[in-house]
Amino acid sequence: MSRRGKLSIIIVAGFLTISLLAPVLPLEDPYRIDLDSIKRPPGLEHPFGTDNKGRDILARVVYGGKISIGVAVTAAFISALIGFGVGLVSGYYGGVFDSVVMTVVDFFLSFPSLLLAIAISIVLPPGIYTVMIALSAVGWTSFARLIRGHVLTVKEMPFVDAARTTGCSDFRILLRHIAPLCIPLALVLMGIKLGGYILTEATLSFLGLGAQPPTPTWGYMVSANRAYILSAPWMVLYPGLAISITAFCFNVLGEALRERYDFSSDIH
């Protein structure tokens, strides 16, 4: 993997570790309202400043990272799981099921994904689980398509015939002989897609469809604080930077994975 790819893994892993360790780090309580110190600019006491309710922005960005990265990674994992299952069955059995599934996949892949995610988010009550469901519902398709394509080549290999001759059931062949060969592929695609998940999660939160206040998420912080952009720009600057840097690192990682495993650029 390229040097940039490795560096981005280290940065993202660092972000994740800090977010997960947040409760034991010497941070302020991200929920504590302190009306004596509202809109303090960044300084020694509050490295990222405070917001209009006197809450420490650094603490809120760190705690928000746990939710934002956590939701994105979980959603990517669920997408991979659904797409993996659908792709396996679709590629192995083919036929009508395959045609129907691939039509659905084509539809999802070409439709403006944010509109779809919004439509799903408004039916369900807002919150992190809704965001996960919306992201997964939009995201599983590219996994399904990739895995299906791979299954189509793998199932023609001699060892599958050999397994069948020894009397393995379809289920066993799929699970024990074909699926293990597809797992690395799904993991690589997950790495490629994570940057996009971070951004969509942030956008849904920005629109107020994600975790509800006072829970800190990066997207919602930008949205709620944007009225103070002139008097306290740090309130908007730092959460936005957190999103951008995280998404950037994931995207560089994705690029590195793409080059390393020779993925064509047409997998959106």
């Binding site: 951004l199 949205s223 951008s244 995207n251």
Partner: peptide, 16 residues
């Protein structure tokens, strides 16, 4: 890659 990573809602606010 930066262009793809910066959320539109944020760049909109900053540019504005």
């Amino acid at each position: 890659i930066s262009g793809l990573s910066i959320p539109v809602f944020w760049s909109a606010i900053i540019i504005m």
